[in-house]
Amino acid sequence: MPKNTDCAAFFLNWVATNEEARKINVAVGGSNPGGPADLPIPPVEPGSVTEASLAAGQTLAQDNGAMDFIANATGAIFAAGWTPELQKMAGGQQTPEGLLDAVQKEYETELSR
């Protein structure tokens, strides 16, 4: 059992919930500070990309729509499924439902090979 597990747990909790810590998260990392969805997001420069992505992150958290970082997927499905289909969706050639269908189909094809 590692030493100071309670300290580690307290720190991880603090990083996501303490107001000052959340400000540092956003200022230095530019990313969503995580933690409970009802905590306020620290202010950023209005009209910046960071502001838009933080707002989108809040919506995701409230809709319970977050998923794992796609680069954590297996190399094959990432290169053949997620990446091309996400690019098509961003370019308007694919719908979100179509994306999930295509990824599922690619997964099944890979399993069959």
């Binding site: 190399g75 094959a76 990432f78 290169a79 053949a80 990446t83 091309p84 289909e85 690019q87 098509k88 961003a90 370019g91 050639q93 890979e110 090979r113």
Partner: peptide, 22 residues
């Protein structure tokens, strides 16, 4: 990197991906 979609994927790249990623 072969994108967007597969519009610039060429056989050379796909062979590499099939062998080492898939």
């Amino acid at each position: 990197g072969g994108g967007p979609g597969i519009n610039t994927t060429v056989p050379g790249l796909e062979i590499y991906r099939l062998a080492f990623a898939h």
